[in-house]
Design a protein around this nucleic acid. Sequence first.
RNA 1: GCGCCCUUAGCUCAACUGGAUAGAGCACCUGCCUUCUAAGCAGGCGGUUGCAGGUUCGAGUCCUGCAGGGCGCGCCA
Length: 599
Amino acid sequence: MSDLKRGLSEAVAAAFAAAGLPAELGRVTPSDRPDLADFQCNGALAAAKTARRDPREIAAGVTATLAADPRLSAVEIAGLGFINMRVSDTALSERANEIAADPRLGASSVAAMRRILVDYAGPNVAKPMHVGHLRSSIIGEAIKRIYRFRGDMVVGDAHFGDWGYQMGLLIGAVMDENPFVKALMEQLNGRTTPITSEEEKTAFAALESRVSLDDLDRLYPEAAAKGKAEIEYRERARKLTAELQSKMPGYHLLWRHFARVTKVALERDFHALGVDFDLWKGESDVDDLIAPMVKELDDKGLLVDDQGARIIRVARQGDKRDLPPLLVVSSEGSAMYGTTDLATVLDRKTSFDPDHVLYVVDQRQADHFEVVFRAAYLAGYAAEGSLEHIGFGTMNGIDGKPFKTREGGVLKLNDMIEMTRTKARERLREADLGAELDPDTFDDTAHKVAVAALKFADLQNFRGTSYVFDLDRFSSFEGKTGPYLLYQAVRVKSLLRKAQGEGVKTGPITVADPAERDLVLLLDAFDQALTDAYEKRAPHFVAEHAFKLAQAFSRFYAACPILSAEPVLRASRLALADTTLRQLEQALDLLGIAAPERM
RNA sequence: GCGCCCUUAGCUCAACUGGAUAGAGCACCUGCCUUCUAAGCAGGCGGUUGCAGGUUCGAGUCCUGCAGGGCGCGCCA
């Protein structure tokens, strides 16, 4: 099944070919001038250049062939040689019924399924998530869903930051504060026999009541600051980190406790945001791969000694700049950020063997990934071009600088959601919406409104551009916002409930009113929005489509009475509303946004 | 210093292989709730696409230069 644009493109391409011109010129796009046409083709203008002929003359030839097409009610040449097409109401009605009957709501699938891994969010142990993680989570989740919906086999990986210097800092800080933990560490680290599972259970239970996530959140900033200021403190943390990485029993157990409490809380927060991972692989998971990998890289002759460190040079001929090498082993003998990333590429090759990996990470790390990717290609861990960095801009405050709270700190993800939720509750009450809902449903609705507000605010922008996070604006809930989209969806749901109550059924769609035409043309444009989002890894195409669809529905809703119409018309309009709702909810779902039943 | 990205309406952002009159939302102004949810709808106001050149029948889009802003550039992640 193909959309109108594609179907017409084929016809126009054939017409160009019949005129002895390249078929590619027959590409049809939605019209820039809806007052004149539904679709247009600019091919005659392009042809004129190479064929050195009058574009209007070329267009005339093509138009003559197209005139007989039953789908078109009008074909005209306009301006310098634009071919304008108006689709007949019959063809539009047919297409509407096709979409209504399609479980995919008019969306096509990829021709060949690929195995895709999406690496996003990247939360860390102890370090609280901040707004920077928000964009990666939101964009990554949307990309994952869009790829999956298009038919690829997609796996989303949180890429948990659980294996660095921050762990040494935390271990030290917790021991300093808690004599029990210090004693436990001394006891376990001194062990010569393995810890039994029974002992392990007891130790975890003891830690559970003594070291909470709040403690970690509180201790980490202090420890990080102290580590910056005091050499001795820093050295101890380094030593503890090394001891952890050499799997000293006590530290390793304590670390597992840190990782577990953090992960539990993070998964809960992510889930509340509509972000769920298939894999929750940590940096620690590839630790064992590093030593053999380094040996293998050495055997392959890729490692070079330089200033006491071991590096891989990745510069290529024709580079415009001096790309730094990948630092594989530091002069102190430890693995670096890039080492872990490289080992992760290798791990993924053996475990999932992806055709393509998308790294949804801040644009500022573009050079870092370029270096890692090149090293991976050199090592044969991934096919050239199969690793791709999906960069995004920073989220700034209204002052244009990276987003901070009033106090100057970094705003935590949780606080941001809670702030938005509070706004949502206020707005619901102000607008006297949801008054009849029970408290739990009301809260659930407020939560969905908040998530929609946050996510849509982010996803309506192209991911590459930095954008201004203005909570007041986002939570005004008017105009181009997530809540607007939910509101339109809820209006249809309410309408459908009422129709059901009156025993009114949907029927075949017949398009006549201009508002109906516009709505169907938008329903038809869903596939193009998806294709653009997929090919450019840019969810804002889907967000834009959802908004335009909601807008078109709202116009239709205002212009065309539904339940009070004559039975046949009523059934048609009800079907149109129902189809719109299903496509709108599908688009919202791809953005990771869920609509409530009422608001 | 080298490199990458950005600059579009008062504000926040779009603009599909270069195409017609550069579009939305907010703000401001005017209408519309006895009729399916007014977080809505209809209409109005608002532009030398940072500046200067170039390529082209045609440039927000491609090329060059300049100005302003952001970011990155080996032992943090």
